[in-house]
Amino acid sequence: MEMKQILLITDGRSNVGGDPARAAAYAAQNGITVNAVGIIDGDNDVLSSDEIKAIALAGNGTWQMVPLGMLSATMCTVTYRSMHNTLENIVNAQVKKIVGSDMLDIEPAMRLPLVRYADTLADETPLRCVILVDCSNSMAVKLKTARAAILDLLASFKVRRAGGNLAVIAFPGQSGSHYQMICPFTDDMELLKGHLNELKHRGNTPTAHAINAAISYILNDEQPFFV
């Protein structure tokens, strides 16, 4: 088994290309979890948690709204929590099969062995995660932090027992395209670092297009360089 995830980083509302929550639901149907982190911006607070929440709910994932300074720590906790949830659902299904009742029918203080088991399984399951970085104009001053946070996430994967691979897609892409492959799946810090310099801010926020591109990349291993 392998866990497949999409992690969306954005500071604004999607404004091109349809409903991102529908795209996230399509990802979930294909066994891909969609998590979302919204960056709260003091001066320009255009992002409401509604869209972020809807994307994560439709994508069976987790979400959080954070100030820029907490981006890297939050990307890490959101990813881990989502992996835990995926494995906890599997453990829960097993428990149901064996004892006929749900984990939630057990008193929380007695649930520890199951929670711990789910975490151990999560740590031993390979992970592939596509990070979707909003590169619209409002992200201009935040891209430096986002680059550091992405490198940081790969550093976190390094200490997992099963390791992890990470790919980065920016949206919008260059010369009018909706998205652009920045870095294909890798576990190489230096390679990722080099590619991340290609993250440039431009244009609007075609979130649904980006999620669809990530889905086809994960499922078919096609590198979506062009729309």
């Binding site: 300074g69 907490m70 720590a73 890490c76 881990y80 976190s156 997992r160």
Partner: peptide, 15 residues
């Protein structure tokens, strides 16, 4: 010796 899941960047050696 398990991976660190919860941290604050200022106090995190890896950051």
């Amino acid at each position: 010796d398990a991976p660190v899941k919860e941290f604050t960047p200022t106090y995190d050696i890896a950051s």
